[in-house]
Amino acid sequence: MNIKKKFRVILPVGVLALAAVAWAGSPQILQPAGPGPSTASFTAINKVFTGDWQQYGQLFTSWQGGLFNRIFLLVLTIVPVVFLLHYIIIGAKSFSHAGTPIKFFGILTRFLHWLAALSFSLLVITGLMVVFGKFIGGGPLVMSGRSIHLIAAIVFCLSAAGLFLIWLKDMLPMPHDILWLLIMGGYLSKKKKPVPAGKFNAGQKVWFWLATVGGGIMAWSGYTLYSFAAPVDQIRQMAILHNLLAAGLIAFFIIHLYMSLFAVKGAISSMLTGYKSREEVAILHSRYKI
């Protein structure tokens, strides 16, 4: 009897309590599950840490891990070999120095050219020191190479900007440049026939635009690599750009060296004295108005 009475009290209370729990619980059931599982938070964490790595991080890693080195090695071997073959098979062009020489480069032009030449050579040497750093042991030697790379870059930018302004008019593309490119400037034959070129031939123009505009891109990407003042994915793009463009610039640098030192005998003297021989101008820069 006593137990029955107690049961009558407990039962409604129990039912009420259960109902209360169910009522309190039901909104939670209707709500989307609040805290996600660990796997969901892993996805969110990945976005912070490794998300953009799949973009250029992976590309940069695989290219820097082998491709760039191979490209630089190819440029440094194939380009000189090709031009060595040219020197052996076709040989250098030489021109008579009879007659009054023609003024080609002013003193400021020559000064800026040699300033650019010196700084560019340093850029190539110190840049390759970083690329092939493992073969010279790294450490303070390559570290100081990086410092020289920075100073040389500033000097090159200033001198190249000067040359850009001086030569811009003569370096604009002309229709006869296509003809020059079709016969490769007459460098594939031993004959001395006048080639279509003004003050500068198409090859020189390509080198000019590559060195000035390309140099500007190198300066821009190089500054990003130096300062790291960009999102990491952009830094990776800049590193890729800097390396690939550098390989192109070095290839043309070697060509420029070959042309001025070997392909045309005495060509370098025009940049030292400012004068070219009359015959050389008549053949290689046939459309240059004296």
């Binding site: 991080g57 940069f60 890693t61 820097q64 970083v130 750093g133 042991g137 790294g138 450490g139 390559v142 570290m143 190479g145 990086r146 690599l225 790291f228 990491v232 830094i235 990776r236 590193a239």
Partner: peptide, 11 residues
């Protein structure tokens, strides 16, 4: 040996 080029940071 490190030259501080920053490539490892990019990778």
């Amino acid at each position: 040996t490190c030259i501080g080029c920053g490539y490892c940071f990019m990778a």
